[in-house]
Write a protein that binds this DNA or RNA. Structure first.
Lengths: 175, 175
DNA sequence: TCCGACCACTATCATATTGCAACCAGTTCT
DNA sequence: AGAACTGGTTGCAATATGATAGTGGTCGGA
């Protein structure tokens, strides 16, 4: 993870920013799990990131303009990590990776349902979700256009995930 | 780069396959540069990959079903690396990464022109390019639909790149 | 005011990965 | 035969990762 530029190729430069094992997972948790504090990212991720790695990635992503850190007024030590516009625009990459993974790898049902919805929703849904993130991370005035649906894309993704989890729990109890 | 699965999340699983600094660059060179031999990939890449890393990535990507290696009839030691359907379907991820990099990072003009065309062409052009790769890598019968344009998407990308390089050379000579 | 829970983050250290350079043996060209 | 080329491998130093424990500080309740 050195910061020397190997070439001016856009794919290479992007890989030098987010091309490691953890950066995109942190961004995924911020986007889809709305985790905004260090502790949330540390303990509520499926993959159990180590605290030093998380600290390093948050620092690096902040330096690179993907995230910004602001103080949490409720607690002097707490910081709130927010996505920048640049960070929000990483969504299509994550969406494509999720779609590819779901098609070709052994994805679990509950963790694949969001990918499925995002895939079916296509770029229109991505745009909707990105605009919701603008409101959430950049401020209420940062939206490009007014909401198009009463239930937000983020809420729909979350509801679908919870429905699968609830269904699995019921099936486990019944079986 | 261990192969232990950290979670069944599609994004995580995808990252475990191609989430390192080199795998996607190798795939990029195969896709856009049509490099099919070890030596081509080793010496004709912008980023100067080390031979042991290249050997490792080719092996790993082959094991994971992204590439296949076949013998080159013209030379007993030479192998030809081809993309599988799974590998071809990585194109949208690369296209999104290229688009993001071009918007937000200091991309050089000649290396950014392909990203620009791919971005402007959108998913329709990606599909066209993917179908061309099916013919090139899987065999003439593997196309999903007949070619839609007389000049292939791959040729258009290559031509645009060469035009920029030629333009730069002319400008250097003139200035 | 004291205590325990919580906060972001760091230190240490073993292991894994990376990257450079030299090297290899078989193959093809001349 | 000999040079040049083929796809690699080996050894080693530098770097990145990851598990665990610990830092100094904050907060809320008794």
């Amino acid at each position: 993870m050195s910061d020397a530029r190997r070439s001016g190729c856009p794919i290479n430069l992007t890989l030098e920013v987010v091309g490691d094992r953890w950066s995109l997972l942190v961004i995924r948790d911020i986007m889809f799990g709305n985790r905004r504090h260090f502790r949330e990212l540390l303990t509520q991720s499926e993959e159990r990131i180590a605290s030093n790695i998380l600290a390093d990635r948050l620092k690096r992503l902040t330096e690179q303009g993907i995230l910004v850190r602001t103080d949490d007024p409720s607690h002097k030590q707490k910081g709130i990590y927010s996505l920048t516009e640049q960070g929000i625009q990483l969504l299509p990459i994550l969406a494509q990776m999720a779609a590819w993974g779901r098609r070709h790898l052994p994805v679990t049902e509950e963790l694949g349902i969001r990918a499925q919805l995002l895939d079916e929703g296509g770029p229109a849904m991505w745009d909707e979700f990105m605009d919701e993130m603008r409101e959430l991370h950049l401020g209420p005035g940062a939206r490009l256009k007014p909401p198009t649906s009463t239930v937000s894309a983020g809420q729909r993704l979350q509801a679908a995930y919870e429905a699968v989890v609830a269904g699995k729990a019921a099936a486990a109890q019944a079986g």
